Simulated scan of single mutants.
Amino acid sequence: MQFSSLVLMEIDKETNQFVKELGSYEASEGAEFVTKLNYFGELINLTFDTQVDVEEWQFTAIYDNFNEEIFKSKGYYIEAVDDEYNPTWLVKFKYSDEHMVVREAIIEICELIKQELREVFIKIKGKEEEYKFEQE
């Protein structure tokens, strides 16, 4: 599914309720992996996952082979979210009142997501026995 834009919603830190829509931002390929895009008063939180259900061995293999450093080298904070069914990550970055600044960050992050998830699925192909053996 192609996404043309993502909507950024402000969330109240204390009540966790939606406050208002901050804007709609053009997105690139990779946006289909984004599951949440929120602003909590300091940073934008962008959550993404694999978009497909993965097998147990793939879950571990994906986390082992996903290169978070690509995001960190661009100045983004990234962490794995381990309480989700499929491999999931949270990326945090600064909000700006300038629409184009946020737009460019979202486009860059979406491109990184697409690139890294594509590469990680290639890297783990054929490693089922290796990971199944490790889990036993």
Rank of each mutant, 00 (worst) to 15 (best):
I107G: 05
D53C: 05
E130T: 15
A61S: 11
E116R: 13
H99P: 00
I78P: 01
Y77S: 14
D64I: 01
D64A: 06
R103F: 02
E119T: 13
D97V: 03
I109A: 04
D64S: 05
K125I: 03
D82W: 02
E56F: 12
E128I: 13
E129Q: 15
D83R: 03
Q58V: 11
K92A: 07
N67W: 05
Y85I: 12
I107S: 05
E69L: 07
E79V: 10
I62G: 02
Y95I: 09
T88R: 00
E108T: 14
K92G: 11
V102M: 06
E129Y: 13
Q58L: 08
Y76E: 12
E55P: 04
Y76L: 10
W89P: 00
R103S: 09
A61F: 02
E128F: 06
I70D: 09
W89V: 00
T50N: 07
V52G: 02
T60Y: 06
N65S: 13
E130D: 11
K125P: 01
Y85W: 10
A105G: 05
G126E: 12
T50E: 05
E119I: 09
E116W: 10
Q115S: 15
E116Y: 10
W89D: 00
I70F: 08
Y95N: 10
K125C: 04
F66T: 00
L112R: 09
D53V: 08
D83A: 01
N67Y: 07
F59N: 07
Y131D: 13
E68V: 05
I113F: 07
T60D: 08
T50R: 03
E108P: 00
F93Q: 11
E130A: 14
I107Y: 04
D97A: 06
G126S: 09
K127F: 05
K94P: 03
T50P: 02
E119W: 08
I78N: 02
F93N: 11
D64E: 08
E128Q: 15
G126I: 13
K92V: 05
I107C: 06
D53M: 09
I124S: 06
E79L: 04
K74H: 14
C110A: 08
F93H: 08
G126T: 14
Y85L: 11
E119C: 06
I70N: 09
E108D: 15
E84S: 07
E104T: 07
A105N: 15
R118Y: 12
L90C: 03
L90F: 02
I70L: 14
F121V: 10
V81N: 03
W89S: 00
L90N: 06
Y77I: 08
V81R: 03
F59Y: 14
S96E: 06
W89T: 00
I107L: 13
Q115E: 15
Y77L: 12
V120R: 11
M100P: 00
T47V: 13
R103W: 01
D97N: 12
Y76S: 10
V54F: 11
E130P: 01
W57T: 12
E55T: 15
D83C: 01
D82M: 04
E128T: 12
E56P: 01
E116N: 10
T88Y: 00
V52F: 07
E69R: 10
R103A: 04
K92W: 06
Q58G: 09
N65T: 09
G75N: 14
T47C: 02
Q115V: 13
Q58C: 07
A80Y: 01
Y131F: 09
L90R: 04
F59L: 14
N67A: 11
R103V: 03
